[in-house]
Design a protein around this nucleic acid. Structure first.
Lengths: 250, 250
DNA sequence: CGCTAATTTGAGCATTGTCAAGTGCTGTGG
DNA sequence: CCACAGCACTTGACAATGCTCAAATTAGCG
């Protein structure tokens, strides 16, 4: 593969347009945004592009963490399995997000595609070299990490304090915002995660997720388009539920 | 205050001994571990030490994030309040931990002391200058951030998939390990968090936390020493519950 | 020693999980 | 292009975990 193609792939997938995203507030998503062309060419020589099928794993929990991935196309879920077999979805990732960056020797969770998609793979040792050569890149990682930490804390809040419907509402809104961040057009969003995936993410059973979604549908807040399309009709209502700005507010 | 005193305070509080902690695996806790003496002196000139009382706030949710704090003594809780008044404890922090570092303009959560203690306060702009002068410091922040992120994901797993008793067991074990990391001696650990604090952290009510602790006591797994002392008699049993290594394991 | 706050414990109830059966996409093969 | 098979989803009835409300008990602190 031509190294420059790989660079373009990274840039395209990462959505490195000059515009500021109105929803997520960041100047751009993805890893390489702060690098100039010379640095990008430098980096591109080291990265490989891979295409993955639905339900295919990017890496497994426990794998040696030899690479860092950038999801350039598609949607993935991060899963963690407990010793007794219980599984949990830690989070979802979209085009432009980084997968599998860790200072640990092994991946603490697995990553599987929910759609067909592509990833850019970069050797971890090479990334460390890049850090030394382009310090701005390390700062980029730190900022992304902090942002992810903030998102994790939001999720902790949701799991600890929100009812089933509140969690599902918050999830739907954040899914819509994530897709709007990535230049989605039209009122219908992709929902490639199954009810089971959503349930494992929100700490609910798939039946409870289904009931919540049905309830929203019956209230006219959403409309379903087949199994993988969803339209938010009354987003304000969903946000009201999902923000913890409940009716019991003083 | 003498700048060098402040440096010592940082070093002491951060537990920067040369030994590797057997429990948490890191070479040392705290911020300044990788800096040499010259850098420490440089940094010390910028930091201020503060003593705080029980239940006093280090900073509030929504405050402009002008400073970064190092908790040098005592235990603190991080809290987040929702618009409707529901509150959640995001986490607990101990001597050596960093508080309030964020790239955002405002603190997304508040920090309050659970015990009397001291913090070292460093201006955020000065910290950014330190990053440029000592790049190793930025890497230190990145590693700490990744570690915290991993801890958050563990917590997400616990909130989403663990029963009440499993969560309380995991909390007690992690509390014990945190104190052992910080050179605690003897079998009795401090438990300055109230049942309500623990409940808000674990997504449970204080009554449910109390029932779980009572159950452990009746099984002989723990012994209470007043309201703020706890002794783990059968740690293996608690770990078995709290690891998700349940009885249903194959 | 007495006051206050934290904790413990109990009883009833609500939300969510479990189990089960039925419906409707979606994609594949004829 | 259509029929069928498989999977995801929906819905219902019941059970259980954890919450709510209430009262009693204990620890800590002056």
């Amino acid at each position: 593969m031509n190294p420059l193609d790989s660079t373009r792939a990274l840039m395209d997938g990462l959505g490195t347009g000059a515009d500021v995203c109105l929803k997520c507030g960041s100047r751009s998503i993805g890893l390489c945004a702060p690098l100039d062309m010379a640095a990008l060419d430098d980096m591109a020589g080291e990265s490989e592009r891979h295409t993955l099928d639905v339900r295919e794993a990017v890496f497994h929990q426990g794998d040696p963490a030899r690479h860092v991935y950038t999801l350039t196309e598609g949607m993935a879920r991060l899963t963690r399995v407990l010793p007794d077999g219980r599984q949990s979805v830690i989070g979802f990732r979209f085009a432009g997000d980084i997968l599998g960056f860790t200072p640990a020797a092994e991946h603490a969770f697995g990553a599987e595609m929910l759609t067909r998609g592509t990833v850019c793979r970069l050797d971890r040792r090479r990334l460390e070299q890049m850090f030394r050569r382009y310090p701005v890149l390390e700062r980029r990682f730190l900022d992304l990490c902090m942002k992810e930490l903030a998102a994790s804390q939001d999720h902790i809040l949701a799991l600890g304090r929100f009812s089933a419907e509140e969690r599902v509402a918050a999830f739907l809104v954040s899914l819509a915002e994530a897709q709007e961040c990535r230049n989605h057009v039209g009122p219908v969003f992709d929902l490639p995660a199954t009810r089971a995936d959503i349930g494992e993410f929100l700490g609910l059973t798939l039946e409870t997720v289904s009931r919540a979604i049905s309830a929203f549908r019956k209230r006219g807040w959403i409309r379903l388009h087949g199994h993988s399309g969803i339209e938010l009709i009354d987003r304000a209502a969903l946000i009201g539920l999902g923000n913890g700005d409940g009716a019991d507010a003083a």
